[in-house]
């Protein structure tokens, strides 16, 4: 694997194997320590974090679902107050859609696609790392707000006027719209990386008709995300402008 590429890189042609391996290692290893942990750009590490984080959110969302089921176990139960219930069902939907379903799919792609098309790292590795942090902080923002009783209570679809400035008082829907924007940026970034990886970084000789079916599927998914996410991003941004900037997009 390491020797195969020598022919294309003039500088490395004359290097002995040991030296070449040393240089490769230097280029591709993750630096140790706290800073190295923050600055990691290796797609396998980032994707693994993505998957673990997404599954943590899945568990949290599942706990909320159980709380809802307990409340609904018999009519007019007083287990959860209506206000808290609305927060819980909004949080559940938002968590499952934006903090689990989309990220976990993309993280699987970010993990396997570079390996399957035979490249060392995903395209735009720093963007990949950035998208993880966006996703993480978006999710944290939402869940900390929930812990503080300020979680969005307008439904995970946040229809205006209910989510608008007049009928959704407080910071709740603001936090939702901000968090959605964060995770959308993350999702969009990963989708772009996958498309570029598949089109530009396939191993020599791997033409498009020879890529694995999984890679095809992920490519299609990435294109769908690229089509869909900007529309949602536009909506959540206009919602925030409506609420905080005094604009009128409703």
């Amino acid at each position: 694997m390491t020797k195969k590429q020598d022919a294309h890189v003039p500088l490395d042609v004359d290097l002995p194997d040991a030296e070449l391996e040393h240089r490769l290692r230097q280029t591709w290893t993750t630096r140790p320590g706290f800073w190295g942990m923050i600055a990691v750009v290796d797609h396998k590490l980032v994707a693994r974090r993505y998957i673990v984080t997404a599954f943590l959110f899945l568990i949290l969302g599942g706990l909320l679902a159980m709380a809802m089921r307990l409340q609904l176990a018999r009519p007019e139960a007083r287990f959860i107050s209506p206000d808290r219930y609305n927060q819980i069902f909004t949080m559940h939907g938002t968590t499952m859609m934006f903090l689990f379903a989309v990220p976990v799919m993309e993280a699987m792609a970010a993990y396997f696609v570079p390996l399957m098309v035979g490249t060392r790292n995903i395209a735009f590795p720093r963007l990949n790392a950035f998208s993880y942090w966006m996703f993480l902080f978006g999710g944290l923002l939402l869940w900390v707000a929930f812990a503080l009783d300020s979680a969005p209570d307008v439904g995970w679809f946040a229809y205006v006027p209910l989510a608008g400035p007049q009928y959704g008082p407080g910071k709740r829907a603001d936090l939702w719209a901000q968090m959605i924007t964060f995770t959308e940026v993350a999702a969009l970034s990963v989708a772009v990386e996958i498309v570029v990886t598949v089109f530009k970084q396939r191993a020599p000789g791997m033409s498009l008709d020879r890529i694995p079916v999984f890679v095809w599927a992920m490519l299609v998914m990435a294109f769908l995300v690229i089509m869909a996410m900007p529309a949602i991003m536009f909506s959540s941004t206009t919602l925030i402008l409506d609420r905080l900037g005094g604009h009128a997009f409703l």
Binding site: P82, N86, D153, V154, Y159, L162
Partner: peptide, 9 residues
């Protein structure tokens, strides 16, 4: 049948 706030239910 459309979520309308606190006392929708």
């Amino acid at each position: 049948a459309e979520f309308c706030g606190l006392q929708h239910s």
